[in-house]
Nucleic acid binder design. Structure first.
Length: 886
RNA sequence: GCCCGGGUGGCGAAACUGGUAGACGCAUGGGACUUAAAAUCCCUUGGGGGAAACCCCGUGCCGGUUCGAAUCCGGCCCCGGGCACCA
């Protein structure tokens, strides 16, 4: 055994050992694992080319779960793949002039090589690359099935349009309302596209996320619930006449109880009525409405952008009829009304809706109070939150002029019911459940994605590509130039014949949203090489037992994957409707950043390695200087690792110096895995010191351990007993923390175990008992540490002879705390007086309540604080504390 | 703007269901070893007061519930994630 810890040698040897065994190759129904399967998977990475410490943290988490579950007796499988389609490859192509395919494949090779030294337990035989035709053909195939089943359909969508580059822009590519390359103001443009009817599954998606997904974080469940957004309300119509025709303007409201407070209606700029009124106005020679609608087209389509807009509107001078009061209500066009939600029109009740209130104040519209809450005073100039209250509210001034409809005195629910019934009787409305969720638009006017398998024929229209002609291959040699979609300029791709009539036709040039790729890749991992989309092996591994990924995917990806799974279930491709039993959302890895500003205010960011931090005598960081010139740099705080701030920490250098185990252990130790944590070289070296100390200790003790008895004798002296107690309490906590995925405290536990054992080394106990305890303790320590730092654990496990006795660490069962070691004869209790800590007493474990009280009151320190005052109450918390209230 | 999180020493954090705030680690200061440095080891380290025993204050801010609050409730401030074409 090498007396000094050489991580490179240790890691090479351990990896070679497990490679030779093909240790991570998972087989269905493997008889070695009677507890059954366990499928753990991390969200697949985008192959950007550079692996950073953030990846390291994510996949270490995954690996720790793998190893812990395997040590617990499960047939564990963990795969890896690449989310290979997407925008960054096109951007790289524009910048470097190389085809996205080439760039992407080179990146994958690079990243795979960078993964190698980390020792992750991936079963690479299951690798999925989403830009491979063997994968994306099934996106196309399922899309065709969805078309057949009516789940996929075509309608218009609104996109960001760059008028200079003649290109559709992603929201990300719109910066301050302008195209990021051209700088031209972005416009909204309507174009046709394909949609998937996720709203058909809204009820089920909501119901299951609320009631069934108990293994999911509460916050993600809440976010999805709110996203799906079920609301009960009333859909009703304002009748009107236009050009002699009777028409209806439909709206949806959750506040039908305020219907008598309507003083205007607002429609979206894209609403057919808005267009009709604008055209009518143009015919009369005015362009006020047209101008406003044009104005609303400015800017992008991102909801965050729209929501932040100043609420503006324009009166149309056109009136509709209030369905109950019969009053004339003016139609406005409002920039805040979304065509995609509800009916694209809303009733305006300024008295009881904050947004309408502000709108009415701005444009001098009447504000009518129709709800009262107790004695609260209503002011038409100042908004108060109770105006929108539904609890304890009563309708007032809610009587139609003809007296036919009267809701005065009714509560929220009574009024809603009555209004809905009255509208229904008129045939002008009914109760309705409205979803916030919108159908999923999957068409992208981009090259690097799955081609949508449609052929456009002048005679037959949009014709699906026959199943037998799949996959529609994406040409891999095109180089986008930032204007338009290169597929639309590629004659080889475009030219085809209509599957229906055989005449020359054109291929659809839109590709699919990359969320399609990530909606089912985890099922494909289960069945490498399958000739169908999925097969029986998928049924074995799915549903996934533990899914791990970033919180940023809480809604979109996770909702789409759930939807996709349900569609597959309904097509009899899966027996399960929910893909992920347990979900863990990991936090980001952050890093310090440093900069200097030049005369023009431009920032130059320094790599952390170029900077030296200086501290005052109390350890408070005071300033940082650049190593190159010794002059100060400014501290930019702890930020998300990004290229632009030069604070991306790459694992390579650290691993070469300190080893993968140190890097793995530190990223686990840095903080709770579900929260963001900063990378720090100094702290990481601290973890490395721990591993080195462990190695040295094992080396020192190896002969004593070799000669030690295999089990700890039942009778131990007090000092050994105490050490063993500490060890097993720590083990118990570590096992609990493994289960709840708090791996930071697992690393702490391993450190505490080493401290306890180092202390035990000094104990003057009789040699065999203390050697036996050391042996037991190191065995426990190595197994506790193993999932986090597998290589060093493996090496020491072998060196200390555990492998010979108990087999390979991979499959050695996790140790369990011993009841005997956990038991204590005496307990130390904290004594509080009026809730403040005033003393401690040691009592026998099974001492009676009376005896404990007596002991506490006898403590001289406690007596000082009780000091003759009458004891009003004594609270005893078993095994913890006693509180004396005086 | 809307939805969801988070805020504890100089720093990363711990405290499992309301019960000893700061485990474990980093950094800092002091010391040992060394010709020296590195490495290693030991001690100190929330703030204030005190010679000491010990006392007071302290978990973003304000208020409440409780024998007892980092933890529960109400209000506020700040930071982060998402908002449907970044992945």
């Amino acid at each position: 055994m090498d007396p000094t810890y050489d991580p490179a040698a240790v890691e090479r040897a351990a990896q070679e050992h497990w490679r030779a065994l093909e240790a991570y190759r998972a087989k269905e129904n493997d008889p070695r694992f009677p507890k059954g399967k366990y499928y753990v998977c991390s969200m697949l990475p985008y192959p950007s080319g550079k692996l950073h410490m953030g990846h390291m943290r994510n996949y270490t988490l995954n690996d720790v779960v793998y190893r812990f579950m395997r040590s617990s007796g499960y047939n564990v499988m963990t795969p890896m793949g690449w989310d290979a389609f997407g925008l960054p490859a096109e951007n790289a192509a524009i910048e470097k002039g190389i085809a996205p395919a080439e760039w992407t494949r080179a990146n994958i090779a690079d990243m795979k090589a960078q993964f190698a030294p980390m020792g992750f337990a991936f079963d690479w035989s299951r690798e999925v690359t989403t830009c491979d035709p063997g994968y994306y053909r099934w996106n196309q195939w399922l899309f065709l099935k969805m078309l057949e089943g009516g789940i996929a359909y075509r309608k218009t969508q609104v996109v960001n349009w760059d008028p200079v580059d003649q290109t559709v822009l992603a929201n990300e590519q719109v910066v301050d309302g302008r195209g990021w390359r051209s700088g031209a103001p972005v416009e909204k443009r309507e174009i046709p596209g394909y949609y998937l009817a996720i709203t058909r599954y809204a009820e089920e998606l909501l119901d299951e996320v609320t009631n069934d997904l108990e293994g999911w974080p509460e916050q993600v469940r809440t976010m999805q619930e709110n996203w799906i957004g079920r609301s009960e309300g009333v859909r009703f119509a304002f009748p009107f006449e236009l050009d002699g025709k009777s028409e209806r303007l439909w709206v949806f409201t959750t506040r039908a109880d305020t219907i008598m407070g309507v003083t205007f209606v607002a429609v979206a700029p894209e609403h057919p009525l808005a267009r009709a009124l604008a055209e009518r106005e143009v015919a009369r020679g005015a362009r006020r409405l047209q101008t406003f609608i044009e104005e609303c087209k400015r800017g992008g389509v991102a909801d965050a952008e729209l929501a932040a807009l100043e609420k503006k509107g324009v009166a149309t001078g056109f009136f509709v009829e209030h369905p109950l009061s019969g009053e004339r209500v003016e139609v406005w066009i409002g920039n805040y009304v979304l065509m995609g939600y509800g009916e694209g029109a809303v009733m305006g009740v300024p008295g009881h809706d904050e947004r309408d209130f502000a709108f009415a104040l701005r444009y001098g519209l009447p504000i009518k109070q129709v709800i009262a809450l107790g004695e609260e005073a209503f002011s038409p100039t100042e908004w108060k939150p109770w105006y929108a209250s539904t609890e304890g509210s009563r309708c007032i001034h809610s009587r139609s002029p003809d007296g036919r409809y009267d809701y005065d005195g009714k509560s929220y629910q009574e009024a809603v019911d009555a209004v809905a019934a009255d509208l229904a009787a008129l045939g002008l409305g009914e109760k309705r459940v409205q979803w916030r969720l919108r159908d999923w638009g999957i068409s992208r006017q981009r090259y690097w994605g799955t081609p949508i398998p449609i052929i456009h024929c002048d005679a037959c229209g949009a014709v699906p590509v026959p199943e037998t002609s799949l996959p529609v291959l994406l040409p891999e040699d095109l180089v986008p130039d930032g204007t338009g979609n290169p597929l639309a300029k590629d004659e080889r791709f475009l030219a085809c014949s209509c599957p229906k009539c055989g005449k020359p036709a054109r291929r659809e040039t839109d590709t699919m949203d990359t969320f399609v790729d990530s909606s089912w890749y985890f099922m494909r991992y289960c069945c490498p090489g399958a000739e169908t989309m999925v097969d029986a092996r998928t049924e074995y591994w799915m549903a996934m037992d533990q899914y791990i990924g970033g919180i940023e995917h809480a809604v979109l990806h996770l909702l789409y994957a759930r939807f996709w799974t349900k569609v597959m279930r309904d097509l009899s491709l899966a027996s399960f409707g929910e893909p992920f039993k347990r979900l863990f959302t990991q936090g980001m890895l952050l890093a310090h950043c440093y900069y200097r500003e030049d005369a023009n205010g431009r920032k130059r960011w320094f790599y952390p390695a170029e900077v030296e931090q200086q501290f005052d005598e109390r350890g408070v960081p005071v300033s940082a200087v650049a190593k190159e010139d010794g002059k100060p740099v400014l501290y930019g705080g702890i930020e998300k690792m990004s290229k632009s701030k030069n604070n991306v920490v790459e694992p390579g250098t650290f691993i070469r110096q300190f080893g993968a185990d140190s890097a793995r252990a530190f990223v686990m130790f840095a903080g709770p895995p579900d929260q963001s944590a900063p990378w720090s070289d100094a702290s990481a070296e601290g973890v490395h010191r721990f591993l080195r100390r462990l190695w040295t200790f094992c080396h020192e003790q190896r002969e004593r351990i070799a000669a030690a008895p295999r089990s700890v004798p039942p009778a131990l002296d007090a000092a050994l007993k105490k050490t063993r107690h500490e060890l097993h309490v720590t083990l118990q906590q570590a096992l609990f923390d493994y289960q709840r995925m708090k791996f930071n405290t697992v690393v702490s536990a391993a450190m505490k175990m080493l401290i306890a054992l180092e202390t035990a080394r000094e104990l003057p106990a009789e040699p065999p008992a203390s050697a036996a305890l050391l042996r037991e303790g190191l065995g426990v320590l190595l197994q506790t540490l193993y999932p986090v730092a597998p290589h060093i654990a493996h090496a020491l496990w072998v060196e200390l002879g555990f492998a010979e006795e108990r087999g390979d660490l991979l499959d050695a069962p996790m140790p369990q705390p011993s009841e005997a070691a956990l038991r204590q004869d005496e307990l130390e209790l904290v004594v509080q007086v009026n809730g403040k800590l005033r003393g401690r007493v040691t009592v026998a474990a099974e001492a009676s309540e009376e005896a404990v009280k007596a002991a506490a009151l006898a403590d001289e320190h406690v007596r000082k604080f009780v000091a003759g005052k009458p004891v009003r109450k004594v609270i005893l918390v078993r095994g913890k504390l006693i509180n004396i209230v005086v």
